[in-house]
Every structure is written in C-alpha cells, then in structure tokens.
C-alpha cells in the first residue's frame, strides 16, 4: 500500500480533510435552509449561502401563517400518547409470549409476525374509513389509533425478557410474587434500556408520520407538524423562504431531542439488525 509509506501525520490530516469535506456536503442542505429562514422576504436571492441580513420576521410569519404552534402541540400530544401506549401494549404482550405457556401461543405469535409483513401504506384506504365510521377524523384518538401497538416492540421486549436468567422467576415465585408482580418489580426494571430505545423509536416514528395525518386531519386545526408543513407549503408556494422558515421550526425540536437521546436512538435503530 502506497499510503502506508506516508508519515502518520499526513495520513491523519488526509482523513480529517476527507471527513470535513463529506461533513460539509451532508450539512449543506441544512445550512442553506437555516440561512434562508433568517433572511427577510425580498432578500432571499442575495447571498443564499451567507447570513448577510438576519431577521426573525420570516420565522415569526411562518409560525403564524402555518399555525405551527398548534401543530407542535398536536404532534407532541399524539406522539406522547403513541409512545406510552406502545410501551404498555408491548410490555404486556412480550411478557405473555416470554413467560406464559398457553394453548394457541404459536398461533398468536404468528398473528403478530404477520403484521410485520403488511406495509402501512397498503392499509390507509380502509383505515381512513374505519376512523371516519368511528367519527374520529380531526381528533387525537384518530391520529394515534393505528399506532398504539407494534409487533416490533413486542418482539424487541420478548427477546429481552427471554434473556433474563430463569432463576429470577423461580426465586420470585418462592417469594410469593405472581406474574403481574414479577413483571412490575423485576422484568420491566431490568428491561429499562430497551424500553428507552422503544420509547424514542415510537415517539420518532409517530412524530414523522406524514401520510396518516394528511388523511385524518381535514381541518387545519388538527394538523400535526408534518401535515402542517404540507399546508404551509401549498398556501405559500410563491414564498420559498417562508416555507423554509416553517421547516426550520418543525425540524429544530426533533434535532434537539435526538442530540440528547443519541444512544437510545442507535439501540432502537439497530435492534432489527442484531441477531436474535
């Protein structure tokens, strides 16, 4: 290898150079967006790469015109409902599959497995009319309902529960703990890292839902941030930097959340890749 004859310092410098160049390319769209969001309306053609004139006016207008405050509240409430519900439903069903023996277990397991094969996009036609029949259009329950349980979460936690030492359950039984007590006092606390990953993953996927809220929220007051951006972009198609300011407002909170919870995110995303 030719590179191995180069002095160490040069190779490190080369790698840093390459890393920096790639980082610039990856961040480029984000940079242009942020610069555009802080520019006044008429100025967007001037120096699109440099924040030569900075104002909060564009962001303020986007906030107001896009009704983004309301959308942020809606998204937060829906995502919190989904996250909590997924934790509860997944813990319960994972526990049943890991610790209980009962007739029909294989069949029930097959039902959960089968749901993983159905793309959500193929079910929206029917789910929309289900929600309509329930009179849940434009409501939190309508926005959250299809995501309250997930086979992914069930399998993730079942795997964790199966890896707990068998003696734990025996010892707990000696102490007179039933299944519910064992689940609450022992199994759930020991699964905390995976619960954290599942919670973040559930929150993120609910927050990022696009098709579902555009179908369910026919009234702009019920927009989530994603469908709110759609409404804003269609209403203000001739004001590009107003739309991009709205995009910054929507992107910022989740950037901050992920910066804090990086570890849980990695665990959640790689869960499917790890053999198990």
């Amino acid at each position: 290898m030719a590179t191995s004859t180069l002095p160490r310092g040069w190779r490190a410098a080369g790698r840093y150079g390459l890393l920096t160049a790639v980082a610039v390319v990856v961040l480029f769209p984000i940079w242009v967006m942020v610069v555009g969001a802080f520019k006044p309306f008429g100025d967007v053609l001037q120096d699109p790469l440099l924040p030569t004139s900075v104002t909060l006016e564009t962001l303020r207008t986007a906030w107001r015109d896009g009704n983004l405050g309301r959308a942020l509240v809606n998204s937060t409430i829906v995502s919190l409902i989904v996250t909590m519900a997924q934790l509860v439903t997944s813990v319960l069903s994972a526990y049943a599959f890991a610790f209980l023996r009962f007739p029909g277990r294989t069949f029930a397991f097959g039902v959960f497995l089968a749901t993983l094969l159905v793309p959500f996009e193929a079910t929206v036609v029917v789910n929309r009319s289900t929600i309509q029949d329930l009179d849940w259009l434009n409501s939190f329950q309508g926005l959250a309902a299809p995501f309250l349980a997930t086979a992914f979460g069930t399998f993730l936690l079942r795997q964790v529960f199966l890896q707990l030492p068998k003696d734990l359950r025996e010892a707990a039984r000696m102490d007179g703990l039933g299944h519910l007590g064992f689940m609450r006092e022992v199994a759930v606390p020991l699964a905390r890292p995976s619960l954290g990953a599942l919670a973040l993953f559930g929150f993120l996927s609910s927050w990022n839902q696009y098709l579902w809220p555009t179908v369910i929220s026919t009234d702009d007051d019920w927009n989530t941030v994603q469908s709110g951006l759609r409404t804003l972009s269609q209403a203000q198609i001739d004001k590009p930097n107003l739309v991009i300011a709205g995009t910054v407002i929507v992107a910022l909170p989740i950037f901050l959340v992920l910066l804090v919870f990086q570890r849980q995110l990695v665990r959640g995303l790689t869960a499917g890749a790890v053999k198990g």
Partner: peptide, 15 residues
C-alpha cells in the same frame, strides 16, 4: 395480549 391484538387486528390485518 388483548390490547395489542385489538389494535393490530383492527388497523393492520382487517384493513
């Protein structure tokens, strides 16, 4: 299993 099954059957398998 009921809570998960109700959701998965209603919003994944039935549709």
């Amino acid at each position: 299993l009921a809570p998960s099954l109700v959701v998965l059957v209603t919003f994944v398998l039935y549709p």
